[in-house]
């Protein structure tokens, strides 16, 4: 335990040495770009006579109203929890299925066509079916989020489990790695970066799935909040909802990246730190 801990702190320290300057510049760049876009947006909207195009200032003014509205927070919490739950189920089962089918050839042969097919199907096409089977309910939403998260996890994990370097397999054999430990000592760690990449894709797809069901099946949540506000000409409030979605997505991928650094400090794509 202490061994891994001290390595981790070394890695963290090494990162911290370079980080401040680089991060400062990055933040500055992002802020400058955002400001520029907002400025162009504000100026351009001055030429719109209909008043239907939301403006940055309008959105800013709408924020207090939205953020003090308890039903907005209930909707946000509702959708966020559903996404988290579906992601958790999808990631856990997707990883297990991926590891298993990645390693056992006949299982892979059996499942590959369905996985590939389902992965290619636009999720929107499944919403009507889900509502027939599960009703216009949060359960249908959860089911769709789960399926949405499951598939990229399976695909990426299978990919990783199949790409384990032959030398590592040979080393495991020659070193007498027991069969029962192969999964945890070889396959799982070797596949971990691929699993993480799958989770990253899954986050985006899970958000899309949640919003899609809320739109199409009128399940209460952030998606319906956006839809209702847009339909009742509260475009500014609607856009605030969209921003919250963006924040959710960014938070998710940031968390995955942080987890990757923690769980797989050895993984170093293209030599970057």
């Amino acid at each position: 335990m202490s061994v891994t801990e001290s390595t981790r702190s070394i890695a963290v320290a090494a990162g911290a040495l370079r980080a401040p300057k680089v991060r400062q510049r990055k933040v500055l760049l992002v802020a400058a770009t955002a400001l520029l876009i907002l400025l162009i947006w504000q100026i351009a909207s001055a030429f719109d006579a209909s008043g239907l195009v939301p403006t940055p200032s309008g959105i800013l003014l709408a924020m207090p109203g939205v953020f003090t509205n308890p039903s907005f927070w209930i909707d946000t919490l509702d959708t966020s929890l559903a996404i988290l739950e579906g992601l958790a189920i999808g990631v856990v089962f997707g990883t297990l299925i991926g590891l298993l089918t990645g390693r056992v050839r006949w299982l892979r042969g059996l499942t590959a066509p369905y996985v590939a097919g389902l992965y290619a199907v636009p999720l929107l096409a499944l919403v009507p079916l889900a509502t027939i089977w599960l009703g216009y309910s949060p359960v249908a939403r959860l089911a769709l989020i789960t399926v949405a998260a499951l598939l990229p996890c399976i695909v990426s994990t299978v990919d990783g489990a199949r790409k384990i370097a032959r030398e590592l397999e040979d080393a495991a054999f020659v070193l007498h790695m027991p069969k029962r430990r192969v999964l945890f000592d070889l396959v799982f760690p070797a596949t971990l970066p691929y699993i993480m990449a799958g989770v990253n894709v899954a986050i985006g797809r899970a958000i899309v799935a949640a919003i899609a069901v809320e739109f199409l099946a009128s399940v209460p949540g952030l998606g319906r909040f956006i839809l209702i506000n847009a339909r009742s000409f509260h475009q500014d409030a609607s856009i605030v909802g969209v921003f919250v979605l963006v924040v959710l997505g960014v938070l998710g991928t940031t968390a995955v990246e942080a987890a990757r650094r923690r769980m797989a400090p050895w993984h170093n794509p293209r030599g970057e730190k």
């Binding site: 370097a165 030398e167 080393a171 020659v174 790695m177 760690p189 050895w266 993984h267």
Partner: peptide, 27 residues
């Protein structure tokens, strides 16, 4: 019977110490 590999065959997720100790741990 031990083997030394052309591309080293080290477990990238294990430290130097953990790589070297692995055959001992397994045994």
């Amino acid at each position: 019977v031990s083997m030394v590999f052309q591309h080293f065959g080290l477990f990238p997720w294990k430290t130097v110490e953990a790589n070297i100790a692995y055959p001992l741990v397994v045994r």
